Amino acid sequence: MRFAFHKMHGLGNDFVVIDARALALEITPPRARAIADRRTGVGCDQLILLEPSDTADLGMRIFNADGGEVEQCGNALRCVAQLTNARTIDTAGGLIEAAAGDAGVSIDIGAPRFDWDAIPLAYALDTASLPVGWETLEHGAAVNVGNPHVIFFVPDLAAIDLERVGPVIEHDPLFPERVNVNVAQVTGPSALKLRVWERGAGLTQACGTGACATAVAAIRRGLVISPVTVSLPGGDLRIEWAPGETIRMTGPATHVFTGEAELEAFG
Rank of each mutant, 00 (worst) to 15 (best):
1 M>D: 12
4 A>D: 15
5 F>H: 01
9 H>D: 10
11 L>V: 07
12 G>D: 05
14 D>K: 04
15 F>G: 00
18 I>H: 04
24 A>I: 08
28 T>V: 12
32 A>Q: 00
32 A>W: 00
33 R>D: 02
35 I>Y: 01
39 R>A: 14
39 R>C: 13
40 T>E: 14
45 D>R: 04
45 D>F: 05
46 Q>E: 03
46 Q>P: 04
47 L>N: 00
48 I>N: 00
49 L>S: 03
53 S>Y: 03
57 D>Q: 02
58 L>Q: 07
58 L>N: 11
59 G>I: 00
60 M>T: 04
66 D>T: 03
68 G>Q: 07
68 G>D: 03
70 V>L: 08
70 V>Q: 08
70 V>A: 11
71 E>L: 11
73 C>R: 02
74 G>Q: 03
77 L>F: 05
82 Q>M: 12
87 R>W: 06
90 D>M: 06
90 D>L: 08
91 T>M: 09
93 G>L: 02
95 L>D: 10
96 I>F: 07
97 E>V: 11
98 A>L: 00
99 A>R: 15
100 A>D: 13
100 A>V: 10
102 D>L: 11
103 A>N: 12
105 V>Q: 10
110 G>F: 01
115 D>K: 13
116 W>I: 06
116 W>P: 03
117 D>S: 13
118 A>M: 13
119 I>D: 01
119 I>L: 09
121 L>H: 00
126 D>V: 05
127 T>V: 09
127 T>E: 04
128 A>Q: 15
129 S>K: 14
132 V>W: 05
132 V>S: 06
132 V>A: 09
134 W>M: 14
134 W>H: 12
137 L>D: 00
138 E>R: 15
139 H>P: 03
141 A>E: 05
144 N>E: 09
144 N>M: 05
147 N>T: 14
150 V>Y: 02
154 V>R: 06
156 D>I: 10
159 A>I: 12
161 D>I: 11
161 D>N: 14
162 L>E: 12
163 E>M: 14
163 E>K: 14
163 E>A: 15
164 R>Q: 15
166 G>V: 00
166 G>P: 01
167 P>M: 02
167 P>K: 04
169 I>P: 01
173 P>V: 13
176 P>K: 13
177 E>D: 15
183 V>C: 08
186 V>D: 09
187 T>H: 05
188 G>H: 08
193 K>P: 08
193 K>V: 13
196 V>C: 10
196 V>D: 06
197 W>G: 09
203 L>M: 15
204 T>K: 01
205 Q>W: 14
207 C>H: 05
210 G>H: 02
215 A>W: 00
217 A>R: 02
219 I>W: 02
220 R>G: 04
221 R>Q: 15
222 G>W: 08
222 G>L: 11
223 L>K: 09
224 V>E: 00
225 I>E: 15
226 S>Q: 08
233 P>E: 02
234 G>T: 06
239 I>S: 02
241 W>D: 04
242 A>M: 15
243 P>N: 10
243 P>K: 14
244 G>H: 09
246 T>I: 10
250 T>W: 06
254 T>L: 12
254 T>W: 11
255 H>R: 12
256 V>K: 09
259 G>R: 06
261 A>K: 03
262 E>L: 15
263 L>P: 03
266 F>P: 00
